[in-house]
Simulated scan of single mutants.
Amino acid sequence: MTGSELARRLLSEESITSPIVSLYFTVPADPAHLVGLVRRACPDLDHATVDGVRGVVEDLRGTRGGVALFVSPPPGLPRRLSLPCELAESAHVGMRPYVRPLLAALQRCVPYCVAVFDNARAWIGVRREGLLVETAVIRDDAMPYGPAERGVMAGGSRDGYLRRIADRVAETVRKEGVDAVVLGGQAQEVPRLIALLPAVAHEVFAGHIIAEPSAVTPAKLRRLADEVVARWRAATEERLAAAVLDEAAGGTHAVEGLACCLAAAGAGAVRQLLVEDGPEVPGVACESCAALLPDMWPACPACGGRVRPVEDVLEEAVVAVLRGGGQVVPLPPYLLEGVQAAARLRRH
């Protein structure tokens, strides 16, 4: 499930009458401090909801990692999501879950598959929630294991072994919904495995490491794979931002800048929104035509309707795009070159 799909599911749980607390933090954390954070976000919040926040945080003692917590008044059940990265503390109170920090965290914490192999066996695992978990071990049953025989195996047998690894990697990508693939092996063998990857795995191939199952611990393998995926993600984000900004500059079904992106999001015209991973941006929303504006207006300049202030107009744009079936990609601010947002538009 992508970050946009998960956020869309959360937004389907919007409350009609009661506020929802969205709390982001890293455990271990001080429950009293987090409750104080929630109180500052909404001093008038009911005691039952505050107690619900405190109870969940206290139950997390002894665990580690990032947490996204969504709590509504009883009898609503709290929703807790564990994330494989540290999160800056923030609290938000509104009639729906606040999703920008969640999207940004999921963008940074890419779930991936790693396969590391040697002449005898391949180990395949998936990185989720901070752990590298084994999903399969494949052995080359036709491989003679004596050191003197390692270089004289039949090419057909070797290709069959590598093809089994490639097929299992592709199966893992499909079943586990991972976003990237990392391969590890001997320098001369990895290109052969890459060439055999089915399309579903080849499309998300992030890079490779030189390592063998017998010579690397799971912790070291995770660190090496994390570095590969981080470089791949940074390069992918850079290419995406450059492409959308170029399309916007050329007027090719894309726009850039906060005002233009808010207008397109309010009109339901955004297919893909690139949004700066940063602080809240106050603005207003029109209650009549749903226009979103980055400044404080006394009335909607588009229809003259009444406007309401919103604490984060970028969040409003994100929600509008998600509810319209679009994709949202949070990016580091420097990639958007100071424009805060850019968007690809729907082609009608």
Rank of each mutant, 00 (worst) to 15 (best):
R158T: 05
R158N: 11
D159F: 13
D159G: 11
G160H: 02
Y161N: 04
L162R: 02
L162M: 06
R164T: 08
I165D: 07
I165A: 08
I165Y: 08
D167W: 12
R168D: 04
E171W: 06
T172L: 04
V173F: 03
V173N: 00
R174G: 14
K175W: 08
E176R: 07
E176V: 00
E176I: 03
E176S: 02
G177C: 04
G177F: 03
G177K: 10
V178H: 00
A180C: 09
A180R: 00
V181E: 08
V181D: 05
V181C: 07
V182W: 01
L183K: 10
G184K: 10
G184D: 02
G184P: 06
G185E: 03
G185I: 09
G185S: 12
G185L: 13
G185P: 06
Q186Y: 15
Q186P: 07
Q188C: 12
Q188G: 05
Q188S: 14
E189D: 09
V190S: 05
P191D: 13
P191N: 06
P191H: 05
R192L: 11
R192Y: 11
L196V: 09
L197A: 03
L197P: 04
L197M: 12
L197I: 08
P198H: 00
A199N: 11
A199Y: 13
A199F: 12
V200Q: 04
V200E: 01
V200G: 00
A201R: 02
A201I: 00
H202N: 02
H202D: 11
A206K: 02
A206C: 09
A206V: 08
A206I: 07
A206Y: 00
G207A: 14
G207K: 12
H208N: 09
I210C: 10
A211N: 13
E212H: 10
P213T: 12
S214H: 15
S214I: 14
A215L: 11
A215Y: 02
V216R: 04
V216N: 05
V216M: 06
P218W: 01
K220M: 13
L221K: 08
R222K: 12
